[in-house]
Design a protein around this nucleic acid. Sequence first.
DNA 1: AGAATAGTTTAAAATCATTCTAAATTAATT
DNA 2: AATTAATTTAGAATGATTTTAAACTATTCT
Lengths: 152, 152
Amino acid sequence: MSTQNLEIMMNQVDAKLSDVHIIQILKDAGLRPTRQRIFIGGLLFGQEHRHVSADILHIQISTLGQKMALATIYNCLHQFHKAGLLKQVNAVKDVIMFDTNLDYHHHFLNVDTGELTDIDESTVSIGGVPSLPDGFEAESMELIIRVKQLNN
Amino acid sequence: MSTQNLEIMMNQVDAKLSDVHIIQILKDAGLRPTRQRIFIGGLLFGQEHRHVSADILHIQISTLGQKMALATIYNCLHQFHKAGLLKQVNAVKDVIMFDTNLDYHHHFLNVDTGELTDIDESTVSIGGVPSLPDGFEAESMELIIRVKQLNN
DNA sequence: AGAATAGTTTAAAATCATTCTAAATTAATT
DNA sequence: AATTAATTTAGAATGATTTTAAACTATTCT
């Protein structure tokens, strides 16, 4: 395979999905395909994996010339999460972060910037976790490695 | 050693420290032993390990008949943390939790109640963590297992 | 298609944990 | 005891998120 073909393939992986495709994703998730949800879906699905807050998305949407209430973006992100289209990362102070990477994985957190970076799960192994008390089930397991830049 | 002696030992471990002792801890940490810090120290040091928020502490302090500004409790907890007398747990949404257990360990988080439970570190093993980019250092590594009660 | 309905979006207000401010108080030092 | 510097405090401010209730829109029904 030529380098050129590889690039085309890579582009296809991250290519923006058609509205038709996004509408199908929304319908499959039991969500009405509203203009707002289709637009946000276009920014999140079929793209490179992202870690987004409502605020960051709001800024991006505004930059793209769209007008959308911040409350709508909060609603949308929570609905996508509930529908299993997004994961929530519970590690960043003062902000709810959503992750488009649905695979089980962990994160580096830059404590200075709040930036999250995926840790490839395939290499990480967590063992010896004690079993839960009766009547409890694990909802998720999350490893956060807080990192900071050395100042010198 | 008799069972009775063992109990006395155990009690001593969790016995409330004398003010003199707490004042020494504060001084060693470079903190002025104010009335407020001594009182809070008495609730946190030399006791069984606890996970506390400013709010919970405020309620406990009020219940004990003391009057203390919530801002003072926030200040105090942050100062204790900065001085290495407390750890901060960055996993519970919407609230800053402080941990009197200074040893490296992980947590169960009850997602319904927000309650944290220590996971004995000696049994848990985390391997295969990728090395950090140049110029970065890890500040901490935290494993959170989010659990919920089965409803039946 | 047009009307009925149920769900969605919106701006603005409310919430709530936390932080800030500036004045009053207290601990340490002289 | 007087001075200085740190601490505490009440109350205001902050800022992310949620709520409210009215306007809007997608879907269903006829």
